[in-house]
Simulated assay, not measured.
Amino acid sequence: MHLRARPQRWNPLRAQHRAIWQAIREHQPQVAALAASEHIDFVRQGIEDKALDEARRSSALRRLGELPDQLA
């Protein structure tokens, strides 16, 4: 549900899943493996980007004095 609200993330994920499914359906294991690998890289990068954004946000809030110490 969270990703569907973010088309810039949801649309590529949906296309990646479709590519993996299609390659499996067509009995193309090398194509499926490559598509799965690219999908994993995409998801990993998204997780890393999200963590970096959260770290930057927390740092900015600390500088502004808006983040409780226990969350800093």
Rank of each mutant, 00 (worst) to 15 (best):
M1V: 12
H2V: 10
H2W: 11
H2N: 07
L3V: 15
L3S: 08
L3N: 08
L3Q: 07
R4F: 08
A5M: 10
A5E: 13
A5C: 11
R6D: 12
R6Y: 04
P7Y: 05
Q8W: 04
Q8R: 07
R9E: 08
R9T: 11
R9S: 12
R9N: 04
W10V: 10
W10H: 15
W10Y: 14
W10A: 15
W10G: 03
N11L: 15
N11H: 14
P12W: 06
P12L: 03
P12R: 02
P12S: 02
P12G: 02
L13T: 06
L13G: 04
L13P: 02
L13A: 06
L13C: 11
L13F: 06
R14M: 10
A15F: 08
A15G: 14
A15K: 10
A15M: 14
A15P: 05
A15V: 13
Q16W: 13
Q16C: 07
H17Q: 05
H17Y: 01
H17A: 03
H17F: 06
H17C: 11
R18D: 09
R18F: 14
R18L: 15
R18A: 14
A19D: 11
A19W: 02
I20K: 03
W21Q: 12
W21G: 03
Q22P: 10
A23E: 02
A23M: 06
I24P: 00
I24M: 12
I24F: 00
R25T: 11
H27N: 14
H27F: 05
Q28V: 04
Q28C: 12
Q30N: 13
V31Q: 04
A32F: 00
A32M: 02
A32D: 00
A33N: 09
L34C: 06
L34Y: 00
A35W: 00
A35G: 03
A36I: 02
A36H: 07
E38S: 12
E38C: 09
H39M: 15
I40G: 02
I40L: 06
I40S: 01
D41P: 00
D41W: 04
F42E: 12
F42H: 15
F42Q: 07
V43Q: 05
Q45K: 13
Q45E: 14
G46Y: 01
G46L: 03
G46R: 08
G46T: 13
I47E: 09
I47S: 06
D49P: 05
D49S: 14
K50F: 13
K50H: 11
K50I: 12
K50G: 10
A51E: 14
A51P: 01
L52T: 10
L52K: 12
L52G: 04
D53I: 08
D53H: 09
E54N: 14
E54K: 12
E54P: 00
A55C: 05
R56Y: 09
R57M: 13
S58I: 13
S59Y: 04
S59F: 05
S59G: 11
A60S: 05
A60E: 11
A60M: 09
L61V: 03
L61D: 07
L61P: 01
L61A: 09
R62P: 02
R62K: 14
R62T: 15
R63S: 11
L64H: 08
G65M: 08
G65S: 04
G65T: 05
E66F: 05
L67D: 01
L67G: 00
P68Q: 03
P68A: 07
D69V: 10
D69L: 07
D69E: 04
Q70Y: 02
Q70M: 03
Q70W: 00
L71R: 04
A72D: 01
A72Y: 01
A72W: 01
